[in-house]
């Protein structure tokens, strides 16, 4: 297969992996808070988290471009520190993808934590486990399905993003040129066979990932959520 550049594939996998890791670190405490807080702003936060589901990716991308750009609210200070803005960089893409895929990680976790409830945690605390200890030894194993769903959805959603990436990252080979954009490029110059290869690859990969996950999910002993 001539002229098939695999760089966008690796870049995409990298982006999705890093994004999912960031999302787990950010999204888990957020989902926990949403599940157990009695704060009045809970509903508002829930709505904000869900915005990327309904917002056109180009709108999100547009605002992020401004915020992450050299004169932006985040990009500006970042440029002072590192010498370059965040727009059109891999880091910028990670930030954008994190926001874009946030609901797909937070919502399954939120649901899992909510159906887990506090009962087993209280039992763990009474047995001398600190809150963090109880979280890792009781809550996480009991909500593995929720975590699995969150990881898959977060990963898959990042894999397929186009509009946000195009707006924030542009089309820089090796830096921001991800799979979906590469496919678009190929189609634009009528390189249908390359587009086919990449598309079929992505399709197969997505199917295999989901198949694996659902298989594991079915076999997980704990069914809380």
């Amino acid at each position: 297969m001539p002229n098939l550049d695999l760089a966008p594939l690796w870049l995409t996998l990298q982006l999705a992996t890093v994004t999912v890791i960031v999302l787990l670190i950010v999204g888990t405490p957020l989902a926990w808070w949403l599940a157990f807080t009695s704060s009045r702003i809970r509903t508002a936060v829930e709505a904000i988290v869900a915005i990327p589901i309904v917002l056109p990716p180009t709108v999100l991308g547009f605002y992020l471009l401004i915020v992450l750009g050299p004169h932006g609210f985040i990009g500006g200070p970042w440029k002072e520190l590192s010498g370059s803005a965040l727009s059109f960089t891999f880091t910028g893409l990670v930030i954008a993808s994190t926001l874009y895929s946030l609901p797909f990680v937070v919502q399954p976790l939120h649901g899992a934590f909510e159906s887990l409830g506090k009962t087993h945690l209280e039992a763990a605390w009474a047995l001398g486990a600190s809150k963090l200890d109880a979280f890792f030894t009781v809550a996480v194993p009991m909500t593995l399905r929720g975590f699995l769903t969150a990881i898959v959805l977060g990963f898959a959603h990042t894999l397929g993003e186009f509009g946000v990436v195009l707006m924030v990252g542009g089309n820089i080979p090796g830096q921001t040129k991800v799979l979906s954009i590469a496919i678009y490029d190929h189609v634009e110059v009528l390189e249908y066979s390359q587009a086919h290869t990449l598309s079929a690859g992505l399709l197969t990969f997505s199917f295999l990932v989901l198949l694996t996950v659902y298989t594991i999910n079915r076999r997980l002993p704990i069914r809380v959520s």
């Binding site: 009962t119 009474a126 194993p141």
Partner: peptide, 20 residues
């Protein structure tokens, strides 16, 4: 003083065993 530091044994109405 949080529960984990009170040295209390608590048997709930439901067993609340850890299923995993």
């Amino acid at each position: 003083v949080p529960l984990s530091q009170r040295s209390i044994g608590y048997v709930f109405q439901d067993p609340r065993l850890f299923p995993h």
